[in-house]
């Protein structure tokens, strides 16, 4: 196949690994600039888990009084219900941020009208996506860490107990399948008109199933299997089990971590495939920029 037109130049574009990195870096920085200009957005990320955790804690004490800790231990294996709730709420913010920042990404760029501009540029998807992903990762880990620290201060709980490193491993590995889920979810969002409503509901459905306030053993068997098929459930329980006396689903940390690793190996591939297919579908049908 020979070109049927003249070739002049590529303007100012210089394709190199440095400019590829530049795309990722620029996207990352721009995202942070944008969010920092929404007053309070970042602070809200960090405060929300503390408020979320506070409610069941207050509720538990109000209901069970002195017996709260003892009963909680009977039900979950740990009497440290404060840290239990704090972990649940902090993991939840990681999940919800990933859903919003990664899953909603295409949709949001469509709504602001910037997706066309991004897609008309020669930057590769992977480079742009890396920027977006890094941004989501940093923001959600920041929120997680901050919420845990502030929460431990407010609720007077000691974070430094159990296996800290293992807990961190559960968080970091748990985020990887989330990335994949977010993309698959992002594809779904594109099909729905009222996308933000859907994502609002989804985050609470997720919160419900991952057991941010309670052990999923309270579910009837069917709901329990639904919950177990969802990686954040393993992530939350993993963190809890490594810090507190909560049982691992499979009894030992390495089996639970292995399940999470399996999710981490498979789901990003699935997610990215779904993403590429979605992208192609958009370009075939209505075209980038329409929604």
């Amino acid at each position: 196949m020979t070109a049927k037109t003249v070739h002049k130049n590529l303007g100012l574009s210089e394709m190199s690994w440095r400019s590829s990195l530049g795309v990722t870096k620029t996207v990352l920085i721009a995202r942070f600039k944008i969010v920092l200009r929404y007053k309070g957005a970042i602070v809200f990320d960090m405060i929300l888990p503390v408020i979320l955790a506070a409610l069941p804690i207050l509720l538990g004490v109000a209901i069970a009084g002195q017996a709260a800790a003892q009963n909680f231990e009977d039900a979950t294996g740990t009497e440290n219900y404060k840290l239990y709730m704090l972990i649940g709420a902090s993991t939840f913010i990681v999940v919800t941020l990933m859903l919003w920042l990664v899953g909603y990404w295409i949709r949001r760029e469509m709504e602001t009208g910037t997706l066309e501009s991004v897609y008309a540029s020669p930057a590769k998807r992977v480079e742009v996506l890396s920027g977006v992903t890094l941004y989501a990762l940093i923001r959600s880990l920041m929120a997680f860490a901050f919420a845990m620290v502030v929460g431990s201060f407010i609720f007077q709980v000691d974070l430094f107990q159990g296996e800290m490193a293992l807990a961190l491993a559960f968080v970091v590995i748990g985020i990887i399948p989330l990335w994949g889920i977010s993309f698959a979810f992002g594809a779904l969002i594109l099909k729905v008109k009222e996308a933000d409503s859907l994502i609002q509901v989804m985050q609470w459905v997720v919160a419900f199933f991952m057991g941010i306030f309670f052990p999923i053993t309270v579910f009837p068997p069917f709901l329990r299997y639904v919950a177990l098929s969802f990686p954040p459930t393993w992530m939350t329980n993993g963190v809890r089990a490594s810090l507190l006396d909560v049982a691992y689903f499979f009894g030992t940390w390495y089996l639970d971590l292995a399940v999470l690793l399996a999710f981490a190996a498979v789901l990003p591939l699935v997610g990215y495939t779904v993403f590429l297919r979605t992208e192609r579908r958009i370009k075939k049908n209505e075209g980038v920029g329409q929604f």
């Binding site: 440095r18 530049g22 795309v23 501009s117």
Partner: peptide, 16 residues
Amino acid sequence: ENLDYFGALYYIPKNV
């Protein structure tokens, strides 16, 4: 910032 952002997406080196 918008111009810089899209400039980067067009692989234009920073100083250019």
